[in-house]
């Protein structure tokens, strides 16, 4: 990243922050800019943008939910023994399943839209459409899709369920990551078919998903 581009991005981020703050003073509750989400993650260097004030506010609702999830996750993870750096497959599996169980119990009533909020969903879809509709879109899609990808019809996605063992994890190109709100280390974006998945890596649980997120 060149210094010039870095500077431009910083200005854009600052402008979003400033605009958000102005809006807050006028009428609405404080929206958190997407580039700060979640609090412990560094700002995303956008390849699509800048966001309109409305879009930033919409994504801020997702930020709030992400922060709540991370708070819950941190609390639950703290109750389990730390996974050693030289773990056996059994230890990895046990740890993952124990954490998964705790997350699932704590989020018994979780449903689609809890994290990818109804306000954030159209913005996420729009951002992805911009990336996949760009000159590199075809290549980006090809790098996500793979012949070992299960047929989408064979997979029934459920929030708070274990990520299906039969479905391979897909690549997520840097251009896509740089478009979406930044996540902390324990969360990842993945795709199953055209659905965008928010995956808890350590618990191997689907935290939320958006159907039809990848444009055809």
């Amino acid at each position: 990243m060149s210094a010039t581009r870095g500077g431009v991005i910083s200005l854009v981020v600052a402008a979003i922050l400033a605009l958000s703050a102005c809006k807050h003073e006028e009428s609405l509750p404080a929206p958190k800019p997407t580039s700060e989400s979640p609090a412990s993650a560094p700002p995303t260097e956008r390849v699509v943008g800048p966001l309109s004030n409305e879009d930033a506010q919409a994504l801020a609702t997702m930020t709030d939910r992400l922060n709540e999830y991370i708070e819950l996750y941190t609390k639950l993870e703290g109750t389990l023994p730390k996974l050693p750096k030289d773990a056996t497959p059994q230890q990895i599996d046990n740890n993952q399943r124990m954490l998964g169980k705790l997350v699932q119990q704590a989020r018994r009533t979780a449903k689609p839209g809890d994290i990818f909020t109804p306000q954030a969903r159209p913005v996420i879809k729009h951002l992805l459409a911009s990336v996949f509709g760009g000159p590199d879109g075809k290549q980006l899609k090809a790098s996500i899709m793979d012949e070992r990808q299960a047929a989408p019809s064979a997979v029934k996605l459920r929030v708070n369920a274990r990520y299906p063992d039969i479905v391979p994890l897909t690549s997520v190109p840097p251009q896509v990551l740089q478009t979406l709100p930044k996540l902390t280390e324990n969360l990842e974006y993945r795709f199953i078919g055209d659905s965008l998945i928010l995956l808890d890596v350590h618990a191997h649980v689907i935290v939320d998903f958006i159907d039809g997120a990848m444009p055809h």
Binding site: P84, D86, A87, T88, P89, Q91, T170, E188
Partner: peptide
């Protein structure tokens, strides 16, 4: 690789040390 879970980094025989 794209098919690998991140948890593999803890697997002793892959020597990734987490």
């Amino acid at each position: 690789g794209n098919h690998d879970s991140r948890e593999q980094r803890f697997y002793k025989l892959f020597n990734m040390e987490g």
